[in-house]
Amino acid sequence: MKTLARSRLFAPLFVALTASAWAALWLWDAGPYARYLRHASWAELPLIGALCRAAPGASLTLAASLHSAAWLLMIAAMMLPTAFPLFETFARMTSARENSRALMLLLIAGYASAWALFGLVAHGFDATLHQLADRSPALLANGWLIGAAIVALAGAYQFSRLKQRCLDKCRSPLMFIAEHWRGRSARRESFLLGVRHGVFCIGCCWALMLVMFAVGTGSVGWMLALGAIMAIEKNFRWGRAIGTPLGVALLAWSAWIVLQNARIA
C-alpha cells in the first residue's frame, strides 16, 4: 500500500515542483531585480554589489553563483517537464526499494548536472559574443547578424539526424532505463542515468536553448513558449509532426530578420 501511495503521489509532487519553479521565475521577472535575470552585472545589485567591491575576486564568484542559481531555476521550470516520462517511469520501477527517494534525487541531480555544465558553456559563449561585440563597432552595429545566425542554426538543426536520434532516446524512457540502469550499484547508476539522459536531452534542445539566449534569457514568456515546444516534441505522439514546421518557421524568422535589417541599411 505504501508503495502504491508513493507512486500516486509522484506526479502531483512533480507538478508542484515545476509550478514552484515557474512561480519563482515569474516573481523574479516581475520584481525590482528582473534585470539581473538577464545579462546585467550582478555587481550592481544592492548589498551584493558592495560586497563585490569590498572583496577582491568576489564579483566573479558571486556573479557565477547567482547566474548558476538563475540557470538551474530556468532548467527546473523548462526542462524537468520534458523529462517527466523518465522520472515517472523510474519512480514506478524503484518504488519497492527502501531508498527509492534517494535514488530519485540522485537521478534528478545527475540530470541537473548535465544541464548545469551546458549552462556554463552557453553562458561562456554568450559572454564571449558580448565581449567581441563591445570591441568591434561593426559587430555592435550589426548585432542582429548574431541573432539571425542563431535562429537559422536552430532551424537547420531541426532537420539533423543527431536531433532525431536524441529525440528517439528521450521518447523511450523505459528502454532508456533498461539500457543504462541495472540496480546493482543503485546510487551510482541512478546519478549516471540522469547524466546520460540529460546529455541526450541537451542533444534535443541545445539549439532552441540558444534561441532563448538570442531573444533574452530573462523573458519568462519566451521561456514558457520554448519549454512548451520542447515538451511537446519529446512527450507527445504528435510531437514528431511539429519538427519540420518548426524548422521552417525558424529559418523563415531568420530570413525575416535579415530582410528587415537589410532594408534599414
Rank of each mutant, 00 (worst) to 15 (best):
K2G: 04
T3Q: 15
R6V: 06
R6Y: 06
R6L: 07
R8F: 09
L9D: 08
A11P: 04
A19S: 15
A21N: 05
A21L: 07
W22D: 09
A34T: 03
A34D: 05
R35D: 09
R35Y: 06
H39C: 13
A40W: 04
A43N: 05
A43Y: 03
P46T: 07
L47D: 13
I48W: 00
A50T: 09
P56T: 05
G57S: 12
L66K: 05
H67I: 13
S68E: 12
A69T: 04
L73E: 05
I75S: 04
I75C: 10
A83N: 06
A83S: 11
F84Q: 07
P85L: 14
F87S: 01
F90H: 10
T94W: 02
A96T: 07
R97C: 03
N99C: 00
R101M: 14
A102L: 13
L105Q: 15
A109V: 15
G110Y: 00
Y111Q: 02
A112V: 09
A122S: 11
A122T: 03
A122R: 04
D126A: 15
D126W: 12
D126P: 13
Q131R: 15
S136E: 02
A138S: 05
L140N: 11
A141M: 13
A141V: 10
L145P: 10
I146Q: 11
G147K: 02
G147A: 07
A149V: 02
A149F: 01
V151I: 11
G155L: 01
G155A: 04
G155Q: 01
R165F: 12
R165S: 08
L167A: 01
K169F: 01
R171Y: 08
P173N: 11
L174V: 06
F176P: 05
F176I: 12
A178C: 05
W181K: 01
A186C: 07
R187V: 14
E189P: 11
L193Q: 00
G194W: 09
R196G: 01
V199M: 11
F200N: 01
F200V: 03
F200G: 00
F200M: 02
F200Q: 01
C205P: 00
A207T: 00
M209L: 15
L210V: 14
M212N: 02
G216M: 11
T217A: 09
T217W: 06
G218N: 09
V220S: 06
G221N: 14
A225Y: 01
M230C: 04
E233I: 08
K234D: 12
K234F: 12
F236W: 12
R237V: 14
R237P: 08
A241F: 12
T244N: 08
A249C: 06
A249D: 04
L251T: 05
W253C: 14
A255I: 14
A255K: 12
I257F: 12
V258Q: 02
L259V: 13
N261Y: 03
A262Q: 06
R263W: 10
R263K: 07
I264T: 14
